[in-house]
Protein backbone atom coordinates (compact mmCIF):
# COMPACT_ATOMS: atom_id res chain seq x y z
CA UNK A 1 0.00 0.00 0.00
CA UNK A 2 1.25 3.44 -0.75
CA UNK A 3 1.51 6.03 1.93
CA UNK A 4 -1.23 8.13 0.31
CA UNK A 5 -3.80 5.36 0.30
CA UNK A 6 -2.84 4.48 3.88
CA UNK A 7 -3.33 7.97 5.21
CA UNK A 8 -6.65 8.35 3.41
CA UNK A 9 -7.78 5.05 4.90
CA UNK A 10 -6.40 6.18 8.24
CA UNK A 11 -8.24 9.47 8.01
CA UNK A 12 -11.46 7.66 7.17
CA UNK A 13 -10.96 5.30 10.08
CA UNK A 14 -10.22 8.13 12.51
CA UNK A 15 -13.24 10.11 11.35
CA UNK A 16 -15.48 7.06 11.64
CA UNK A 17 -14.12 6.19 15.09
CA UNK A 18 -14.53 9.79 16.24
CA UNK A 19 -18.11 9.81 15.03
CA UNK A 20 -18.85 6.53 16.80
CA UNK A 21 -17.28 7.83 20.01
CA UNK A 22 -19.53 10.88 19.90
CA UNK A 23 -22.60 8.82 19.03
CA UNK A 24 -22.12 6.31 21.85
CA UNK A 25 -21.31 9.10 24.31
CA UNK A 26 -24.47 10.91 23.28
CA UNK A 27 -26.51 7.74 23.76
CA UNK A 28 -24.89 7.18 27.15
CA UNK A 29 -25.54 10.72 28.35
CA UNK A 30 -28.83 11.65 26.75
CA UNK A 31 -30.58 8.32 26.10
CA UNK A 32 -33.93 7.76 27.72
CA UNK A 33 -33.33 4.38 29.31
CA UNK A 34 -30.73 4.19 32.09
CA UNK A 35 -29.64 0.62 31.42
CA UNK A 36 -29.29 1.40 27.73
CA UNK A 37 -27.17 4.39 28.67
CA UNK A 38 -24.83 2.25 30.75
CA UNK A 39 -24.49 -0.28 27.92
CA UNK A 40 -23.73 2.59 25.52
CA UNK A 41 -21.07 3.74 27.99
CA UNK A 42 -19.39 0.33 27.96
CA UNK A 43 -19.37 0.34 24.15
CA UNK A 44 -17.98 3.88 24.33
CA UNK A 45 -15.16 2.67 26.60
CA UNK A 46 -14.17 -0.09 24.18
CA UNK A 47 -14.16 2.37 21.27
CA UNK A 48 -12.09 4.77 23.35
CA UNK A 49 -9.48 2.08 23.92
CA UNK A 50 -9.36 1.67 20.14
CA UNK A 51 -8.72 5.41 19.88
CA UNK A 52 -5.82 4.98 22.30
CA UNK A 53 -4.31 2.36 20.04
CA UNK A 54 -4.53 4.86 17.20
CA UNK A 55 -2.84 7.46 19.38
CA UNK A 56 0.03 5.07 20.00
CA UNK A 57 -0.74 4.69 23.69
CA UNK A 58 -1.10 0.94 24.19
CA UNK A 59 -0.68 1.18 27.97
CA UNK A 60 -3.61 3.57 28.13
CA UNK A 61 -5.65 1.42 25.75
CA UNK A 62 -5.23 -1.52 28.13
CA UNK A 63 -6.15 0.58 31.16
CA UNK A 64 -9.17 2.15 29.43
CA UNK A 65 -10.52 -1.22 28.28
CA UNK A 66 -9.91 -2.95 31.60
CA UNK A 67 -10.88 -0.22 34.06
CA UNK A 68 -12.69 2.48 32.10
CA UNK A 69 -14.99 0.15 30.17
CA UNK A 70 -14.76 -3.18 31.99
CA UNK A 71 -14.78 -2.61 35.73
CA UNK A 72 -16.72 0.66 35.58
CA UNK A 73 -19.26 -1.10 33.38
CA UNK A 74 -19.66 -3.99 35.82
CA UNK A 75 -20.02 -1.51 38.66
CA UNK A 76 -22.69 0.54 36.91
CA UNK A 77 -24.66 -2.45 35.59
CA UNK A 78 -24.68 -3.88 39.10
CA UNK A 79 -25.88 -0.56 40.52
CA UNK A 80 -28.69 -0.29 37.94
CA UNK A 81 -29.84 -3.78 38.87
CA UNK A 82 -29.70 -2.97 42.57
CA UNK A 83 -31.75 0.21 42.20
CA UNK A 84 -34.27 -1.68 40.07
CA UNK A 85 -34.58 -4.38 42.76
CA UNK A 86 -35.22 -1.73 45.39
CA UNK A 87 -37.73 -0.08 43.08
CA UNK A 88 -36.15 3.31 43.72
CA UNK A 89 -38.06 6.31 42.38
CA UNK A 90 -36.25 8.04 39.53
CA UNK A 91 -35.55 11.77 39.79
CA UNK A 92 -37.79 14.14 37.87
CA UNK A 93 -36.24 15.35 34.62
CA UNK A 94 -34.47 18.69 34.63
CA UNK A 95 -36.58 21.65 33.51
CA UNK A 96 -35.95 22.78 29.92
CA UNK A 97 -34.40 26.02 31.14
CA UNK A 98 -31.92 24.09 33.26
CA UNK A 99 -31.13 21.81 30.35
CA UNK A 100 -30.54 24.77 28.07
CA UNK A 101 -28.25 26.42 30.60
CA UNK A 102 -26.33 23.19 31.10
CA UNK A 103 -25.99 22.76 27.35
CA UNK A 104 -24.76 26.32 27.03
CA UNK A 105 -22.14 25.78 29.72
CA UNK A 106 -21.08 22.44 28.24
CA UNK A 107 -20.73 23.91 24.75
CA UNK A 108 -18.76 26.79 26.24
CA UNK A 109 -16.30 24.51 28.02
CA UNK A 110 -15.94 22.19 25.04
CA UNK A 111 -15.47 25.14 22.69
CA UNK A 112 -12.91 26.74 24.97
CA UNK A 113 -10.91 23.52 25.19
CA UNK A 114 -11.08 23.04 21.43
CA UNK A 115 -9.90 26.62 20.86
CA UNK A 116 -7.12 26.18 23.39
CA UNK A 117 -5.93 23.02 21.67
CA UNK A 118 -6.02 24.64 18.25
CA UNK A 119 -4.09 27.61 19.61
CA UNK A 120 -1.25 25.39 20.81
CA UNK A 121 2.09 26.44 19.36
CA UNK A 122 3.76 24.28 16.71
CA UNK A 123 6.64 22.00 17.65
CA UNK A 124 5.69 21.88 21.28
CA UNK A 125 8.18 20.58 23.81
CA UNK A 126 7.01 17.27 25.18
CA UNK A 127 8.91 15.38 27.86
CA UNK A 128 9.57 12.41 25.55
CA UNK A 129 13.26 13.22 25.01
CA UNK A 130 13.72 13.91 28.73
CA UNK A 131 12.21 10.51 29.56
CA UNK A 132 14.40 8.79 26.98
CA UNK A 133 17.50 10.43 28.42
CA UNK A 134 16.77 9.19 31.93
CA UNK A 135 15.34 5.79 30.98
CA UNK A 136 18.60 4.07 31.84
CA UNK A 137 18.43 5.32 35.43
CA UNK A 138 14.89 4.06 35.92
CA UNK A 139 15.79 0.39 35.63
CA UNK A 140 12.93 -0.36 33.21
CA UNK A 141 12.57 -0.19 29.45
CA UNK A 142 8.92 0.79 29.06
CA UNK A 143 8.92 4.60 29.31
CA UNK A 144 5.34 4.70 30.62
CA UNK A 145 6.22 2.37 33.49
CA UNK A 146 9.34 4.43 34.13
CA UNK A 147 7.23 7.57 34.50
CA UNK A 148 4.59 5.80 36.60
CA UNK A 149 6.85 4.08 39.10
CA UNK A 150 10.13 6.01 39.01
CA UNK A 151 10.03 9.57 37.62
CA UNK A 152 6.56 10.36 38.96
CA UNK A 153 6.26 7.50 41.42
CA UNK A 154 4.97 9.97 44.00
CA UNK A 155 1.76 10.40 41.98
CA UNK A 156 1.35 6.67 41.71
CA UNK A 157 1.92 6.19 45.42
CA UNK A 158 -0.86 8.66 46.25
CA UNK A 159 -3.06 7.16 43.55
CA UNK A 160 -2.76 3.66 45.02
CA UNK A 161 -3.95 5.19 48.29
CA UNK A 162 -6.83 6.97 46.52
CA UNK A 163 -8.19 3.50 45.76
CA UNK A 164 -8.08 2.67 49.47
CA UNK A 165 -9.79 5.93 50.42
CA UNK A 166 -12.63 4.99 48.07
CA UNK A 167 -12.79 1.50 49.56
CA UNK A 168 -13.07 2.81 53.12
CA UNK A 169 -15.89 5.07 51.96
CA UNK A 170 -17.61 2.17 50.18
CA UNK A 171 -17.36 -0.06 53.24
CA UNK A 172 -18.70 2.74 55.41
CA UNK A 173 -21.83 2.77 53.24
CA UNK A 174 -22.91 -0.47 54.94
CA UNK A 175 -25.46 -0.88 57.65
CA UNK A 176 -24.12 -0.89 61.19
CA UNK A 177 -25.24 -4.49 61.71
CA UNK A 178 -23.43 -5.72 58.60
CA UNK A 179 -20.11 -4.10 59.52
CA UNK A 180 -17.20 -6.47 59.06
CA UNK A 181 -19.37 -8.91 57.12
CA UNK A 182 -19.31 -10.26 53.61
CA UNK A 183 -19.42 -7.79 50.73
CA UNK A 184 -22.01 -7.96 47.98
CA UNK A 185 -25.02 -10.13 47.43
CA UNK A 186 -25.02 -13.89 47.50
CA UNK A 187 -24.52 -15.16 43.98
CA UNK A 188 -26.28 -18.20 42.63
CA UNK A 189 -25.24 -20.14 39.58
CA UNK A 190 -26.04 -23.76 38.88
CA UNK A 191 -22.87 -25.80 39.20
CA UNK A 192 -23.33 -27.33 35.78
CA UNK A 193 -24.52 -24.13 34.08
CA UNK A 194 -22.67 -22.17 31.41
CA UNK A 195 -21.67 -19.40 33.82
CA UNK A 196 -20.02 -21.80 36.23
CA UNK A 197 -18.30 -23.66 33.41
CA UNK A 198 -17.02 -20.42 31.92
CA UNK A 199 -15.87 -19.20 35.31
CA UNK A 200 -14.02 -22.45 35.92
CA UNK A 201 -12.33 -22.29 32.54
CA UNK A 202 -11.21 -18.66 32.48
CA UNK A 203 -9.25 -18.16 35.73
CA UNK A 204 -6.38 -20.44 34.74
CA UNK A 205 -5.88 -18.40 31.57
CA UNK A 206 -6.74 -15.09 33.24
CA UNK A 207 -4.23 -15.48 36.04
CA UNK A 208 -1.45 -16.29 33.59
CA UNK A 209 -2.39 -13.32 31.40
CA UNK A 210 -2.66 -11.01 34.42
CA UNK A 211 0.77 -11.92 35.76
CA UNK A 212 2.21 -11.69 32.25
CA UNK A 213 0.81 -8.17 31.81
CA UNK A 214 2.32 -7.02 35.10
CA UNK A 215 5.67 -8.55 34.27
CA UNK A 216 5.63 -7.20 30.71
CA UNK A 217 5.15 -3.69 32.08
CA UNK A 218 8.91 -3.44 32.59
CA UNK A 219 9.69 -3.58 28.89
CA UNK A 220 6.39 -3.45 26.98
CA UNK A 221 2.88 -2.08 27.47
CA UNK A 222 1.40 -3.35 30.73
CA UNK A 223 2.01 -2.95 34.44
CA UNK A 224 0.53 -3.20 37.89
CA UNK A 225 -2.72 -1.39 37.16
CA UNK A 226 -3.60 -3.26 33.97
CA UNK A 227 -2.49 -6.64 35.30
CA UNK A 228 -4.12 -6.07 38.66
CA UNK A 229 -7.37 -5.27 36.90
CA UNK A 230 -7.27 -8.53 34.97
CA UNK A 231 -6.69 -10.47 38.20
CA UNK A 232 -9.54 -8.60 39.87
CA UNK A 233 -11.80 -9.37 36.92
CA UNK A 234 -10.98 -13.07 37.10
CA UNK A 235 -11.82 -13.08 40.79
CA UNK A 236 -15.06 -11.19 40.20
CA UNK A 237 -16.06 -13.67 37.52
CA UNK A 238 -15.53 -16.56 39.92
CA UNK A 239 -17.44 -14.70 42.63
CA UNK A 240 -20.37 -13.95 40.32
CA UNK A 241 -20.54 -17.59 39.31
CA UNK A 242 -20.75 -18.49 42.99
CA UNK A 243 -17.51 -20.46 42.81
CA UNK A 244 -15.81 -18.44 45.55
CA UNK A 245 -17.35 -16.66 48.52
CA UNK A 246 -15.89 -13.16 49.04
CA UNK A 247 -14.10 -12.92 52.39
CA UNK A 248 -15.44 -10.88 55.32
CA UNK A 249 -13.99 -7.38 55.18
CA UNK A 250 -12.87 -7.65 58.80
CA UNK A 251 -10.45 -10.48 58.06
CA UNK A 252 -6.81 -9.64 58.67
CA UNK A 253 -5.42 -11.29 55.51
CA UNK A 254 -7.80 -9.20 53.39
CA UNK A 255 -6.73 -5.99 55.05
CA UNK A 256 -3.05 -6.88 54.83
CA UNK A 257 -3.43 -7.57 51.11
CA UNK A 258 -5.06 -4.16 50.66
CA UNK A 259 -2.30 -2.29 52.48
CA UNK A 260 0.67 -4.30 51.16
CA UNK A 261 1.41 -2.40 47.94
CA UNK A 262 1.12 1.15 49.25
CA UNK A 263 3.00 0.09 52.40
CA UNK A 264 5.94 -1.33 50.44
CA UNK A 265 6.00 1.72 48.15
CA UNK A 266 5.77 4.14 51.08
CA UNK A 267 8.35 2.20 53.08
CA UNK A 268 10.87 2.31 50.25
CA UNK A 269 10.13 6.00 49.85
CA UNK A 270 10.84 6.74 53.50
CA UNK A 271 14.04 4.66 53.38
CA UNK A 272 15.04 6.87 50.47
CA UNK A 273 14.13 9.99 52.44
CA UNK A 274 16.34 8.87 55.32
CA UNK A 275 19.11 8.42 52.77
CA UNK A 276 18.57 11.94 51.44
CA UNK A 277 15.93 11.65 48.67
CA UNK A 278 12.26 10.75 49.13
CA UNK A 279 11.17 7.89 46.85
CA UNK A 280 14.60 7.49 45.30
CA UNK A 281 15.50 4.21 43.61
CA UNK A 282 19.32 3.84 43.59
CA UNK A 283 20.27 3.18 39.99
CA UNK A 284 22.13 -0.06 40.72
CA UNK A 285 19.03 -1.76 42.15
CA UNK A 286 16.32 0.30 40.45
CA UNK A 287 15.14 -2.56 38.23
CA UNK A 288 14.73 -4.92 41.20
CA UNK A 289 13.01 -2.31 43.35
CA UNK A 290 10.57 -1.47 40.55
CA UNK A 291 9.73 -5.17 40.27
CA UNK A 292 9.18 -5.42 44.04
CA UNK A 293 6.95 -2.34 44.05
CA UNK A 294 5.00 -3.49 40.99
CA UNK A 295 4.42 -6.95 42.46
CA UNK A 296 3.25 -5.62 45.80
CA UNK A 297 1.08 -3.00 44.10
CA UNK A 298 -0.49 -5.65 41.87
CA UNK A 299 -1.65 -7.64 44.90
CA UNK A 300 -3.19 -4.57 46.52
CA UNK A 301 -4.68 -3.17 43.32
CA UNK A 302 -6.30 -6.48 42.42
CA UNK A 303 -7.74 -6.86 45.93
CA UNK A 304 -8.93 -3.26 46.14
CA UNK A 305 -10.53 -3.19 42.70
CA UNK A 306 -12.37 -6.46 43.31
CA UNK A 307 -13.67 -5.27 46.68
CA UNK A 308 -14.67 -1.89 45.24
CA UNK A 309 -16.85 -3.65 42.67
CA UNK A 310 -18.32 -6.07 45.22
CA UNK A 311 -19.51 -3.13 47.30
CA UNK A 312 -20.21 -2.58 50.99
CA UNK A 313 -20.53 -5.45 53.44
CA UNK A 314 -24.14 -6.59 53.17
CA UNK A 315 -24.32 -9.92 54.99
CA UNK A 316 -23.09 -10.93 58.41
CA UNK A 317 -19.99 -13.06 58.44
CA UNK A 318 -20.90 -16.73 58.99
CA UNK A 319 -18.36 -17.10 61.76
CA UNK A 320 -19.40 -13.83 63.42
CA UNK A 321 -17.29 -10.70 63.58
CA UNK A 322 -13.93 -11.21 65.29
Amino acid sequence: MTSGVGSVAGLAFDLALGGLLLATALAAVAGRNLFGGVVAFVVYGLLASLAWVRLGAIDVALAEAAIGAGLTGVLLVGAVARLARIGAVEPAPTAPVGKALAALGAVGVAGAIALAVLALPEGRPGLGPEVARNLEASGVENPVTAVLIVFRGYDTLIESIVLLAALVGVWAASLERDWGGLPGLRQHARPGGVMATFARLVPSIGIVVGIYVVHAGAYAPGGAFQGGTILAAVYLLAAMAGLVEPPAVSRLPVRLALALGPAVFLGLGVVGALGGTFLAFPEAVAGTLVLVVETALTVSIAATLALLVLGPPARPSPGGAP
Binding site: L258, A259, P262, A263, L266, A273
Partner: peptide
Protein backbone atom coordinates in the same frame (compact mmCIF):
# COMPACT_ATOMS: atom_id res chain seq x y z
CA UNK B 1 8.61 13.79 52.97
CA UNK B 2 7.46 12.59 56.39
CA UNK B 3 4.67 15.17 56.53
CA UNK B 4 3.02 13.24 53.71
CA UNK B 5 4.33 9.75 54.43
CA UNK B 6 3.54 9.52 58.15
CA UNK B 7 -0.21 10.25 58.02
CA UNK B 8 -0.56 7.93 55.03
CA UNK B 9 1.31 5.22 56.92
CA UNK B 10 -1.08 5.91 59.79
CA UNK B 11 -4.00 5.42 57.42
CA UNK B 12 -2.62 2.07 56.26
CA UNK B 13 -2.14 1.05 59.88
CA UNK B 14 -5.70 2.12 60.70
CA UNK B 15 -6.94 0.06 57.77
Amino acid sequence: ALAVALPLAGALAAL
